[in-house]
Amino acid sequence: MKNFAASSLAELFVAPYVIWGTGRVAQAFYRKYCKTESEKPIFWVDSNATKHGSCIDGIEIFAPEAFYRRSEAAYVKGERLSVVIGATGVFLLEILSLMERKMVKAAVYSAVQLDAACYFSEERARVEKIARRFADEKSRYIYESIIRNMKGGRLVDFSLYEPNQYFGNDVIGELARGEVFVDAGVCHGEEIDRAIHGGNIFVHGFEPDAENYAYLLKKYEGRDDVRIHPCALWDKDERLVFQSNAATPSASRLAGADAHEEAAGIAARPLDDVLQGAACTLLKMDIEGAEYNALLGAAKTIEQHRPKLAVCVYHSLEDYVRIPELLMERYPFYRFFLRQHSATSGETVLYAL
């Protein structure tokens, strides 16, 4: 994929283009950058046959074969068609692999890559200031490399990978006896299992998904050292909509319920209200884009108990900047570190000690 630094779509495309994908990431890109007729794609591409022939904003959706034919015809004429892939993670890799097998002659971009190039170019001063605040050179290198990879469309970088996410790593070691671990975003309890394996660790787990919550209640039934709370963490009492996607950096999120009225809401509460002054020694957050607001709702807990923090920052481009800024400005008593726990753009964790 192309390597570039630009601040507007007009600087990126000199050829007609299509958008491959019709999901949230693709449509978010379209709404953000395709504002005028001259900036709009000539058509959408989607492999889902049920969508073929329908339209988004008056622009028709075609099968991949239509894109293959159009790009080949342009190439024969000495022209070139561009494609913006509105998918992320493994889905992006699958599309790239498919186009390579078809020997597609087109300029290929990722919607996330374009967005990252624009966003991080605009926020360069903030990024540089954050990098200077990290406590070690390793964190600075990882932070700058992740951003450079996103801007340049580098999808995989094994050199940044670190094992043992959240604790048991070179930043936060194994948990000590008597610690209180707040696990926000429990899922199936993998991190709880790691934490309680050594014994004498108390866990507050937060899991708003009803199915997962029921599973966890049964899993930890009879245990006095694990308490599961059926809510998400936020900065106020509210009902939120959870939009799930396995890909990164910006495909999953927790949004206000008014954004999708047809979706069922989940309960969300501030951590300060739940704990009511009770101790916390490690606060881990992997809550699909709700981390920033959840940190606002944990301000008293952080000020009073100064727990170790392990906060995911990969759910949106903005989180790579606004979450470090928030913590660095409000809590200068911490030392800050960054580690990457995936070979792709996901699982980036900001640590504070």
Rank of each mutant, 00 (worst) to 15 (best):
S252A: 15
D237G: 09
I172M: 07
E162P: 11
R227T: 14
A184Q: 12
F206V: 09
V274S: 02
A268T: 04
G222P: 14
R177H: 07
F167R: 08
P163T: 06
G168N: 01
V274F: 00
L233W: 06
A267H: 08
V186H: 12
R194T: 06
V171L: 03
C231Y: 01
A267D: 11
G173K: 08
I172L: 09
E162R: 15
R194Y: 05
R239L: 03
K219N: 02
A210P: 08
G189S: 07
Q243D: 14
V226K: 04
Y220D: 03
E262W: 04
A264Y: 04
E174A: 14
R194G: 00
D273H: 03
V171A: 05
P270Y: 05
R239P: 03
A195I: 02
D225I: 08
P270N: 11
E221Y: 05
I196Q: 13
E221H: 10
E262F: 01
C231V: 07
H204L: 12
F202Q: 10
V203H: 05
I228W: 06
A259E: 09
D209G: 05
E174S: 15
I196C: 04
D258Y: 08
V182F: 02
H197S: 15
V241D: 09
S250P: 00
F167I: 07
V241G: 04
P230D: 09
D224Y: 08
N245H: 09
L254W: 10
Y166F: 08
A251I: 07
H188I: 14
G178E: 14
A257H: 13
H204Q: 15
H260R: 13
G265Q: 06
E221A: 10
N212R: 13
C231Q: 03
A184D: 04
A247R: 14
I201F: 03
G199W: 08
A246K: 09
A232N: 10
V203Y: 03
A255P: 02
V274A: 02
R223G: 01
E191Y: 09
